[in-house]
Nucleic acid binder design. Sequence first.
RNA 1: GUGAGUGUAGCUCAAUGGUCAGAGCACUGGACUGUGGCUCCAGGGGUUGUGGGUUCGAGUCCCAUCACUCACCCCA
Length: 419
Amino acid sequence: MKYKALKGVQDLIPPEIELWQHIEDVSKAVFKVYGYKELRVPIIESTDIFLRSIGETTDIVEKEMYTFPDKAGRSITLRPEGTAPVVRAFIEHNLFNLNPPQKFYYHGPMFRYERPQAGRFRQFYQIGVEAFGIDDPKLDAEIICMLRHTLEEMGLTGLEFELNSIGCSNCRPKYRESLKEFLSGRLVRLCPDCQRRFELNPLRIMDCKVTGCIELRQGAPRVIDFLCEDCRNHFDKLKDYLQLLNVSFAVNPDLVRGLDYYTKTTFEVTTTSLGAQKAVAAGGRYDRLVEEFGGPPTPAIGFAIGAERIASLLKDNYVYQSSGPVIFFATLGGEASATALKIADSLRTKGLYIEVGYDVMSLKSQMKRADRLGALYTVILGEDELKSGKAILRDMQTKKQSDIPIDAIEENFLNRIVA
RNA sequence: GUGAGUGUAGCUCAAUGGUCAGAGCACUGGACUGUGGCUCCAGGGGUUGUGGGUUCGAGUCCCAUCACUCACCCCA
């Protein structure tokens, strides 16, 4: 094959595309009742937008970004995630002047240069939301509740909600030091990856799956125990609200987000029915990012849903809805074909789904096509029918046929639909 | 970036190193000169991912390369 899609990217084609439309439609409908407005931001941004927000030492920035110079030599990056561009747009258009909270959603492709595997692609689709201007844990609860609502509405079941608080700029550094102190004596016995994490992101060590590391970190300090009063209150209230809203969740003290900008609340939704890439949505609070981007101090929280993973969970049980044409015109001969085409065109302008056969096809193959398409009726129109002025109307379900005056076809079907 | 596995028809897969590479599904046609689903029959469709090598002989063995898959790192 001469041309193929690039590694890690994929075409979405019928009928599967319908599932994707379902996922987008449901999320839009649910977001709407929570007051979220759509925001469309470019898929390319200045590279430094991601350097500053995601963190220069994260893997995303270090090795996963599609970065290239444009024709004027500026460094451009295909967005690896949606929060940074939304924050940039939020500040650029002074959206903080609106009454808080300012609530937005977006959906579209993201790009990361990674080795593809199950549930991971180089171009992947996220549906995300961001809410600005309120640091009340009620907003955290609302947004997590909205996420649950969205996923359930899409038809997902058996999801697990995990929750954590990773503190703020007051309490996290203290925890980080305490953790490093605890681990420093055991450093040489940790796996090579964790030895690297020790300097880079020691919190990640708590997430390591190597059995030796799991044993070594027994009794390690937990971030939850280091929260300052503000963070602790926030987290406690959030849990209360979630209980009030009947959202079942598990506190996972080891839930660490990969991006630098998160503060306080972090959460993740996982499923047991995918492979290693089992997170279907994740998010958290980022109270400092807007200010760091040059905007006014603005607390914020958001999440993103991984559309590929949702699609792969839903695809086996999804029932495709696409309905067939009301009429299939099976014609024989040029004159009949022209007559049918004209009637079909007229009915289509009235909003009816009509298909016509083409002259190269035998009647048999036209009938077959009508059947495959799921047509309700087939109108058979040949030279005999033109002569008598009456076409054959075949009900595809009952196989019953009757004559119908050619002049009356249009009116007949328009009335049928109205009635 | 690391590791393992797999590349044969549109799809799912066969073929102890030995004729000119097969089957099911799908597609087209016929049985039914102008009537769909079921059945039967026939037909079209392949540079066996690509390039080298070993051999009298390679889909099969070896090397390289590309792609796909899964996992690691990391992450939705």
